[in-house]
């Protein structure tokens, strides 16, 4: 049945005259000027009728990705032809106006493997803007959902557990909650130490990233023991999953808990023997975010393993416990030397 439907769909596309037209390419006017296009197809970032990236959109991957309910993510960068991105001293990629960062979310065993949602981060002359799109039931296009949406999703976790969740597509403001830097939207993922391109990069005709060949130590892959020690991989995990808010310019600046790769991992502001601030029920009755040697007494773990909105961290984008991620952080804390007895 599925194949039959696909064939019919393909025939419809051909009958509609799509064969006679050049393949769609990203529409720079829409990207830079249309405030909030209703349909994702208007951008031309995907090939017509599906979720395959258009020519010139550069797929990329990350050594350590953000956990999002075990979703598989397909990421792409579009830069206008001839445009150049640069890498700043901190290893952040600075993208030109007209750039779109694209991230599609789906599960291999849900929705026939088609994506559920696609998020765009668009660099316009007045700054970055974030737009969430939910794919239509037929998987041919996606529709703007600026107010966010809840979508029932069932999938199998890596350990075989079948999970049915109410997956939350973030609203436009929630996009910014994570992507906020000094109150403005900024990309999170594409940092030189974390980004990874496939072979497509060499042949890509669209915009280029200058300075990509600069040698920087790669961020460890959180789940690959060959890429770093437990502590290093735990820090990579915290950087990617927490530090977009937990930095002095982020949404959690007032917490005083700062978890960037570059922060002092022994300091109180990294959570080591740090008492709760505005944590409420998030403290779980514990004294410290991280109690060295004692994951069971560390409320950082408690919050990562909770699904209660008044407790759970991150606050946005998680309706599932990342068991494997939490296990790594437990291992990291358990391996620390126990400090003062409290």
């Amino acid at each position: 049945m599925k194949l039959g439907a696909a064939a019919i769909a393909a025939a419809l596309v051909c009958a509609g005259g799509a064969m006679a037209l050049p393949p769609p390419s990203p529409n720079q006017t829409v990207i830079e000027e249309a405030a909030m296009p209703r349909k994702l197809s208007e951008f031309g970032l995907f090939r017509a009728g599906g979720a395959e990236l258009s020519d010139g959109v550069l797929p990329y991957d990350l050594h350590t990705p953000l956990f999002s309910d075990y979703a598989d993510k397909a990421r792409g960068i579009w830069m206008p032809p001839g445009a150049k991105a640069t890498v700043d001293a901190d290893g952040n990629v600075q993208f030109p106006v007209g750039t779109v960062l694209i991230k599609s979310f789906g599960w291999a065993d849900a929705n026939d493997g088609k994506p559920v949602e696609t998020r765009l981060l668009i660099h316009r002359s007045d700054g970055w803007t974030a737009l969430p799109y939910v794919w239509d039931a037929d998987g041919r296009d996606a529709t703007l959902a600026i107010g966010g949406r809840r979508i029932p999703v069932s999938f199998d976790e890596p350990d075989g557990t079948t999970r049915s969740i109410s997956y939350a597509v973030p609203n436009k403001n929630q996009c910014k909650e994570c992507h906020a830097l000094d109150g403005a939207i900024a990309p999170i993922g594409p940092k030189l130490r974390n980004i990874r391109f496939g072979a497509a990069y060499r042949t890509n005709a669209a915009g280029r990233i200058e300075g990509l060949s600069r040698q920087v130590a790669a961020l460890p892959a959180w789940d690959n023991p060959a890429s770093g020690s437990v502590a290093e991989r735990a820090r990579a995990y915290l950087d990617v999953n927490c530090a977009h808010c937990h930095n002095p310019k982020g949404s959690a600046s007032n917490s005083g808990l700062f978890l960037r790769w570059t922060d002092d991992p022994d300091g109180v502001n990294y959570g080591i023997e740090k008492r709760p601030t505005a944590a409420g029920r998030g403290s779980g009755g514990m004294d410290f975010a991280v109690a060295p040697g004692h994951p069971e007494a560390s409320f950082l773990i408690y919050r990562l393993e909770s699904l209660d909105p008044g407790i759970a961290m991150p606050e946005v984008g998680r309706a599932t416990v990342h068991k494997e991620g939490a296990a790594l952080l437990r291992q990291w804390i358990a391996g620390m030397e126990t400090r003062s007895a409290h």
Partner: peptide, 29 residues
């Protein structure tokens, strides 16, 4: 019946005026 977010209403912009409504039983703030 809140399922997500750390508070009922989050304001992150200046010069906002909130008036004449009630917020009940949030899971967080």
């Amino acid at each position: 019946g809140q399922q997500g977010a750390g508070e009922g209403l989050l304001v992150t912009s200046d010069d906002v005026f909130l008036t004449d409504f009630a917020v009940l039983n949030t899971k967080g703030d």
